[in-house]
Simulated assay, not measured.
Amino acid sequence: MTRKFTAKGLTAKGLTAKGLTAIVLPLAALTGLAGTAQAQDWTPTRSIEFIAPANPGGGWDTLVRTTSRVIQQEGLADQNFAAINVPGGGGAVAWAQIANDSGNPHKLFATSPPIILVPLAGTSRYDHTDFTPIARLITDYSIVLVQADSDYQDLNDLFEAMRENPSLSVGGGSAPGSMDHISMVGVATSAGLEASGVNYIAFSGGGEAMTNLMGGHVEAVVTGAGEASGQLGEGSDVRALGVSAPERMGGVLADTPTYQEQGIDYTFDIWRGVMGTPDMPAEAVAYYEDLFAQMLETDGWQEARDQLGWIDAYQTSEEFGAFLDAQKEEFSEVLTELGLIR
């Protein structure tokens, strides 16, 4: 039996398989945004600090650097977007710094499910309600990677080995109880393992997780498909066992089977977006809403998005805020079931 998570609410059909389904809005909905007129009332007067709350190489870092590059290349902003990495605590270190900069309209940060999961797990005093939602941008999927010469040919091989030897570890770039951990526990329990049988090792970002995979310190790594796509392909040192998408993806991931194709009824979407400091002025929020809406329509963005395997999933500040509230309710139930809420 399966359980499917949606942005509108939770429909329970069992306790094993879990999926998170993002609402993908058509780009046509971007036209006529109410914030456009307001955005003209404020523009940045200096460079914008655009923070990735992790080391280079992970999903937040990829989103920050990709959006910054596209905005600059397309000439959408007069001021520079400066990518800054603030690693630690699965995002908690960066969030603590940002929370102390209330009202600053020149500071943004990339966000995704850990902004909800990490606080729920008790490892951050700040959650999404302490910050200003700007816009949701895309959705991505989880992917499980092993070394290219690994004996594991598919996910079931890996899970059988984990069943026989619970000490085998799987690495991820997010904190315990956060996105990568939840994604891996979800697919493993859907394949028949106990949640306690997943020996998850948290690293400070996707780049560090990959380094430990190549060093043989973990059996596999769970990460975002988008951030992994640049490391896959002919001659790669890593190989993908499966992706959490509902159907096969394109590009270098075209030959990677979904979890469902391997008899594991599980999907998991990784939404990503942008948030700002607490109490950011409404005029600044409107400016950034309009800026990111324009960015999604550019050729430069669409080329980068397709290369990374992302799917546009735009939401305005108000819509994104409501979405985050709904996600907190859904993830609270998941973590409670897994015994990960402290």
Rank of each mutant, 00 (worst) to 15 (best):
L76P: 12
T43H: 09
L76D: 13
T43S: 11
P53D: 09
I84S: 08
P44H: 05
G57K: 03
D78T: 14
Q79K: 09
I84M: 09
L76Y: 14
N80I: 09
N85R: 05
A82I: 14
L63R: 02
G75Q: 09
T36S: 12
Q72H: 11
S47W: 00
Q40Y: 00
P53R: 08
A82W: 07
A37V: 14
D61S: 11
T67G: 00
T67V: 04
V70N: 04
L63S: 01
D41G: 01
A52F: 08
P87R: 11
R65E: 14
N55P: 00
A52W: 03
T36N: 08
E49F: 01
N85G: 08
R69D: 05
V70E: 04
A39S: 15
N85W: 02
R65I: 03
P44V: 07
I84W: 04
D78H: 11
G57V: 02
I84V: 15
G88Q: 09
A39P: 04
D61Y: 00
R65H: 09
W42A: 01
Q73N: 14
Q72M: 04
T62I: 04
E74G: 06
F50P: 02
L63Q: 05
P53W: 10
T36C: 03
T45M: 11
G59V: 08
P53L: 03
G88E: 10
N80K: 15
A39L: 00
R69S: 09
A39H: 00
A83S: 10
L76N: 11
V86R: 10
E74S: 13
V86Q: 13
T36H: 07
